[in-house]
Design a protein around this nucleic acid. Structure first.
Length: 515
RNA sequence: GGCGGAGUAGCUCAGUUGGUUAGAGCAGCGGAAUCAUAAUCCGCGUGUCGGCGGUUCAAAUCCGUCCUCCGCUACCA
């Protein structure tokens, strides 16, 4: 039953031509929760995140700021790394595409694609959008009233005519389709899969994969006038991170990745180009690509001009790390777009964390402290209601596990919080405070059962709220080595008589400062 | 234009092999209780299940059509 096989999970690497925003934070938090879950479940986990530092946009931003590209990359990458740390992410590595190891890896995969006969040189002429890092055909563009030509995404394009290497993407249409067919879970959620399939079905054109107009990138092997198209280089980070091209590296056992967590805007790169590159290079394909949605501030897309850009550092500062992590993962169905607002965050913090879970812990633990000698209470014979709530808690693991395997983080949390609510109902129904005088043994049993349910909830919620759940488990005197999922269920029941520390609130209410 | 998703209580959403009075959470109102972070528990919803039409003994759930929103994609110019 215990599965200790490797589990490799990645975020997309962030493009550091600006500072981190809530979207980056969201992806990092969600991926971290998925990684932690598997770790607690006994898997050997490798979790990679990082920054994607090449490309023309970086060059332009650097010029505008009067910095070298290296200096800009250095400065901003550090911000992303700091964000990941601030968010409590458990990533095993933080990769930067400007690193030497990554240059080596990218050149190696390039060479493999050359050897496979999938790279050829030609002249490219077309409309190029720097902002989108994409070419458009003439009819995909339009000249607007301002006299500027815009591409399909509404960004300015310029005419580019250059020698370029091409990747024979057109040769991969059938193999990609066959792969989607044979691996229905390759792309999630389903809507995204449909989009990719219908895109590929329409036919694929060869992809321009090098540039000669600037040099901030990875040189093409044997033709250093060219640097690789930034996406070739960026996608390759996923294998660089586990040792490629050294396939004897111990890390290489993590490949293929179990899941690439990405935003829905870059599905095509991950679900079409990336697998095609890998097929060409003779490397196994990742098992799954999962695209999350976008976050909106009160229903509005964040933008600098609207002035509603939220800094992840400020968010953590204002509400607390675990609170922020819980909010985003519980409030937004993972894979769909979501909304956030001060009111929504406060509501979740107070309703779910302070009132439901925090108070459940506090009310039961303080009764234990005052009426059960401050040790794990004795557990007498179990009543039907005791058995029911214990069974519910014991069943949580399978539910959460099934949900997390599909990245349905919100489903796992919903199940756990249903149990929290039922535990409160159980506690109120059994009214241990009333048993204090009439039947102290029964009171102890009720307190024991409640504490045991909290133990399991705290263990299961660790991936989302590592620090807070750790504190909760401290309060239950659960040893550090007994906090794995293997300790869930009857096997790990609390031991009566174990001394408990004085109860202390773990989830404070959030109270607005009175204006 | 094509394809896909969505449109269900004030808010966020669940709910399709069609079948008892359409559900949950949050918010709101009333009550109970007092172990607890004024937290908890119980009770309270006359919702055209986007509109119209159809199939059926029976439709939120199937079919047709229309409207709105979102995504992917194409084309015209």
């Amino acid at each position: 039953m215990a599965d200790s096989s490797p589990f490799y999970i990645t975020t997309a690497i962030s493009y550091p031509n600006g500072v981190p925003h809530i979207g980056h934070a969201y992806e990092a938090i969600a991926t971290d929760a998925l990684a932690r879950f598997q770790r607690l479940d006994g898997r050997r986990v490798y979790f990679l995140t990082g920054t994607d530092e090449h490309g023309q946009k970086m060059l332009q931003t650097a010029r505008r700021e009067g910095l070298s590209t290296e200096a800009l990359a250095e400065r901003n990458s550090a911000r992303f790394k700091a964000m990941v740390e601030t968010l409590g992410c458990s990533n095993d590595d933080f990769i930067r595409t400007s690193e030497e190891r990554h240059h080596r890896s990218s050149q190696a995969i390039w060479q493999r694609m050359v050897d496979a006969g999938d790279i050829y040189k030609n002249t490219y002429a077309g409309w190029y959008s720097v902002r989108d890092e994409a070419y458009y055909t003439e009819d995909e563009t339009e000249v607007r009233a301002d006299g500027i030509r815009y591409g399909g995404q509404g960004t300015p394009v310029e005419w580019v005519e250059e020698e370029s290497y091409f990747f024979r993407l057109s040769e991969y249409q059938d193999r990609l389709m066959a792969h989607y067919e044979a691996n229905p879970d390759f792309i999630g959620p389903n809507e995204r899969r449909n989009e990719v399939v219908s895109f590929v079905k329409r036919g694929l054109k060869d992809l321009s994969v090098s540039r000669t107009t600037f040099d901030w990138g990875i040189p093409v092997p044997g033709d250093p006038k060219h640097v690789m198209y930034v996406w070739v280089d960026a996608l390759t980070n996923y294998i660089t991170g586990v040792g490629f091209p050294d396939e004897t590296s111990p890390l290489w056992s993590f490949w293929p990745a179990d899941v690439h967590v990405i935003g829905k805007d870059i599905v095509r790169f991950h679900a079409v180009y990336w697998p095609a590159f890998l097929m060409s290079a003779g490397i196994e394909l990742p098992k799954r690509v999962f695209a999350h949605g976008f976050l909106f501030n009160r229903g509005e897309k964040m933008s600098k001009s609207v002035g509603n850009v939220i800094d992840p550092f400020n968010l953590v500062e204002a509400y607390g790390l675990d609170q922020v992590r819980y909010f985003f993962l519980r409030e937004v169905p993972f894979g769909q777009d979501g909304n956030y607002s001060h009111e929504a965050i406060v509501n979740r913090i107070n309703a779910d964390l302070a009132n439901d879970l925090g108070n459940l812990a506090q009310r039961s633990l303080s009764m234990i402290a005052k009426n059960a000698g401050g040790v794990v209470p004795a557990c007498g014979e179990l009543s039907d209601s005791d058995k029911a709530i214990l069974a519910q808690a014991d069943g949580l693991y399978e539910i959460a596990r099934a949900a997390m395997a599909k990245q349905d983080i919100h489903v796992a949390l919903a199940a756990i919080w249903t149990c929290v609510a039922d535990a409160n109902r159980y506690f109120a129904g059994e009214a241990p405070w009333g048993l204090k005088k009439t039947d102290p043994a029964r009171m102890e049993t009720v307190l024991y059962v409640t504490a045991e349910v909290i133990r399991q909830i705290a263990i299961l919620a660790q991936p989302v709220m590592p620090a807070s759940c750790g504190k909760l488990l401290d309060q239950l005197a659960v040893p550090a080595d007994a906090r794995l999922f293997a300790n869930l269920g009857p096997a790990g029941r609390l031991t009566s008589g174990v001394a408990l520390p004085a109860p202390q609130g773990v989830f404070p209410r959030y109270v607005d400062e009175v204006a």
